[in-house]
């Protein structure tokens, strides 16, 4: 067994003194693990940081073996983000979520390309909406996609303001107003320009908080609780950071 592909480093775990067990998300082969010999050497240490893009070669005698990776750095995203607290936490969160939730050896090319796009977007000023969109994409890839393009009750495609926690479908302002305490707010940037007037007028900081609450609810219920997984601490730290650093707007 032998293949080569592009990948994103998700995590490493020490194996003995000089080797690590590397987990990468590859474009064609999905999340894959393998051993990297000499991973603690000067030349390799910077390569195997979570979030870095690598060109990997995997080889093993049998497909079910752990196998060995050969890695070459193609994009040093980790180094670019080291000094920016929020984007670094978002990158850690994305890598930890992929590592914890994706099944091994199952191809997810859209998620791979989405993650590459996220890593580039984290270097821009408005990185939080990009991160929340990425979480919506992760939910979709794992089979728990949200339907945010039309109202679940009236089929209206405009004035969308809420999401039903039961079905994960959008609800329009008129239809959902009576039940607003039981619905999740839908930020305008996730409604694709079809949000209600009130949502469109909301400050971005409020939309970001609503977006993290929205994706967090479904991630916890449909992924962590349903699969009996431990919540990803890196995501919790990102959310705490956002709550502390993004100002609350006066209503």
């Amino acid at each position: 067994m032998d293949w080569r592909d592009d990948g994103i480093v998700l995590s490493t775990r020490k194996l003995g003194e000089n080797a690590v067990r590397l987990s990468v998300l590859t474009r064609d082969y999905g999340r894959y693990a393998g051993m990297v010999r000499g991973a603690t050497s000067k030349s390799m240490r910077g390569t195997l940081e979570p979030g870095n893009e690598v060109r990997v070669g995997w080889s093993a005698r049998l497909a079910e073996h752990l196998g060995q990776f050969r890695c070459e750095l193609t994009g040093a995203h980790a180094a670019d983000l080291l000094l920016s607290a929020g984007p670094l936490m978002a990158m850690s969160s994305a890598c930890a979520m992929l590592d914890a939730t994706l099944p091994e050896r199952e191809s997810h090319p859209d998620l791979f390309h989405g993650t590459i796009a996220l890593l580039s977007a984290l270097k821009a000023e408005q990185w939080l909406p990009a991160y929340i969109r990425w979480e919506v994409g992760l939910l979709e890839e794992l089979g728990y996609g949200l339907a945010l393009d039309c109202c679940a009750a009236t089929n209206a495609t405009t004035g969308l303001a809420y999401v039903s926690p039961k079905s994960g479908r959008a609800v329009a302002e008129e239809a959902g107003h009576t039940y607003r305490d039981r619905l999740l707010p839908l930020p305008a940037f996730l409604a694709g320009g079809q949000g209600s007037d009130a949502r469109n007028a909301a400050p971005l900081s409020d939309q970001i908080r609503d977006g993290l609450k929205l994706t967090g609810f479904f991630i916890h219920r449909d992924i962590f609780e349903a699969k009996a997984l431990k919540p990803v601490a890196a995501r919790d730290r990102l959310v705490s950071h956002v709550w502390r650093s993004v100002p609350v707007q006066e209503k």
Partner: peptide
């Protein structure tokens, strides 16, 4: 030097 160190 690797790209990341140079950028930093």
């Amino acid at each position: 030097l690797d790209d990341g160190t140079l950028a930093a």
